[in-house]
């Protein structure tokens, strides 16, 4: 079953066409890497998939719902309920502790539950750092905290933007281990990365160049129109 389908998606900013006719399907439980050079349209594609921007043309179907023409409020609800975001810059809230950074995602979703937030921290090995502020955590710990926050509302899709871009090798390995664990549990993961090493961990890789999809490693084996 496809959790995500893009049909002929284009994104146009004034005279600039950031994405051109992207057609892509992602199966539930799949780990997809999106690769490409700077300016290739990776972030634009991620914004569209993550319901933070609307495509200029084409349709996007997420978890069976066409989100292409939803308004900002509806897109916020989709993000809140179905998507877990992981950022290269971590984007933690500086004045909240680690556990509160997780709880704030619960708070916007439904109800803050400290016990559950602590379990999420334990899952990424941060239970001992729950009362620390982000500035008191290392880069790797901050990224793990970001992952805990992304997972707390049981999203249908985990979207990670260069999740290891700011990490050393050890921390990169820790984060990728967590992704492997999530993938093994059936989570759908889309990772945007420059790094072939990180992309190699994904089950499938697509490449973008100048807004076009150049290459889809999975297509060679199972084209999207062949179903799941």
């Amino acid at each position: 079953m496809n959790i995500l389908e893009l049909h002929d998606v284009s994104m146009i900013y004034g005279q600039v066409q950031a994405l051109r006719d992207i057609t892509l399907s992602v199966r539930q439980g799949e780990w997809l890497a999106i690769m490409g050079a700077s300016g290739s349209g990776k972030t634009t594609l991620m914004n569209i998939i993550g319901c933070m921007n609307k495509a200029s043309l084409g349709s996007v179907i997420l978890d069976g719902e066409n989100i292409s023409r939803l308004n900002a409020g509806d897109l916020t609800a989709i993000r809140r309920d179905k998507i877990g975001l992981i950022f290269q810059q971590f984007h933690l809230i500086s004045y909240l502790t680690a556990v509160e950074n997780v709880m704030i995602a619960q708070y916007y979703h439904s109800m803050a539950d400290e016990k559950e937030a602590m379990q999420a921290l334990a899952r990424v090995g941060l239970e001992q750092r729950a009362r620390h502020l982000p500035r008191q955590l290392s880069g790797g710990e901050q990224q793990r905290l970001c992952i805990a926050r992304a997972l707390i509302n049981y999203p249908k899709l985990i979207l990670a933007d260069e999740p290891t871009g700011n990490l050393d090798e050890t921390n990169q390995s820790t984060v990728l281990d967590i992704f492997h664990q999530l993938h093994a549990e059936g989570s759908t993961i889309i990772v945007v990365t420059h790094s072939p090493e990180v992309a190699a961990h994904a089950g499938r890789t697509i490449r973008l160049e100048f807004g076009r999809m150049l290459d889809d490693s999975a297509w060679k084996e199972t084209p999207p129109d062949s179903g799941s």
């Binding site: 916020t76 993000r79 975001l85 809230i93 704030i104 979703h109």
Partner: peptide, 16 residues
């Protein structure tokens, strides 16, 4: 602005 953007990205509506 970045914090507001983040909050919106993780699901905060305008009301929140």
């Amino acid at each position: 602005r970045r914090e507001i953007g983040l909050k919106k990205a993780i699901g905060a509506g305008n009301r929140a």
